[in-house]
């Protein structure tokens, strides 16, 4: 049976565990290093990235999770999870670190504060029907490296009036990451994409 871990220190890890149950997979809430054993994949959930950074270190999870990601364990990161995976994080705390395994640059809260949080229908490459995407104080991807595939983008009118297509689903090797929350709209198709390959 497919066994997927969800880093369960802070954020919407329950919604991710629900998605795994919908797919008939076993979900493991990961709060300690020992719980990383025997996983077929790992989810970095939404939440506050600054808090998650601190808790990953305090819980002795930063180094083992980093090792698993670099060893090629399939990973899905949503929102804060995308920030944790990104090579470069702009608009974070000065001491904010990330795993740096995904060659993208992100701006935290890149679409503005909570009143600017939004939903939209997105066409995601390889998924058929559109997906309802919920962006909550979402990071905006501003740069994408050569090895990164952009699977979906969202057209967005920024406060300065400019309209740009912003990557919203990206993939590189064993990593899939989204700036929105497929788990909040309860659509497990990206989970399936990330881990069934």
């Amino acid at each position: 049976m497919t066994r997927i871990g969800v880093v369960a220190l802070q954020g919407d890890f329950c919604e991710h565990l629900d998605m795994l149950a919908m797919l008939g997979w076993q979900g493991v809430a990961v709060k300690q290093p020992g719980q990383l054993e025997g996983l077929d994949g790992l989810i970095l959930p939404g939440g506050e990235s600054t808090t998650q950074c601190l808790l990953l270190e305090a819980s002795d999870l930063r180094i083992p999770v980093e090792a698993e990601i670099h060893a090629g364990l399939p990973v899905l990161g949503t929102c804060a999870g995308l920030i944790m995976l990104a090579r470069t994080v702009v608009g974070g705390r000065l001491d904010q670190w990330s795993f740096g395994a995904l060659d993208v640059s992100v701006i935290r809260n890149g679409f503005g504060r909570q009143v600017r949080s939004f939903e939209a229908d997105l066409a995601v490459q390889g998924l058929g029907e559109t997906m309802r995407a919920v962006f909550i104080r979402a990071p905006a991807i501003t740069e994408v490296g050569e090895k990164v595939n952009t699977l979906a983008s969202v057209g967005y009118r920024f406060a300065d009036g400019s309209v740009r297509d912003v990557p919203a689903v990206v993939a590189q090797g064993s990593i899939v990451a989204t700036s929105f929350h497929p788990e909040v709209s309860r659509d497990p198709r990206l989970h399936e994409l990330a881990f069934r390959r």
């Binding site: 369960a8 506050e48 804060a80 939903e119 919920v134």
Partner: peptide
Amino acid sequence: VKRGLAEMLRG
């Protein structure tokens, strides 16, 4: 979207 932010604050 409103409830979603609360969900992100969990834990």
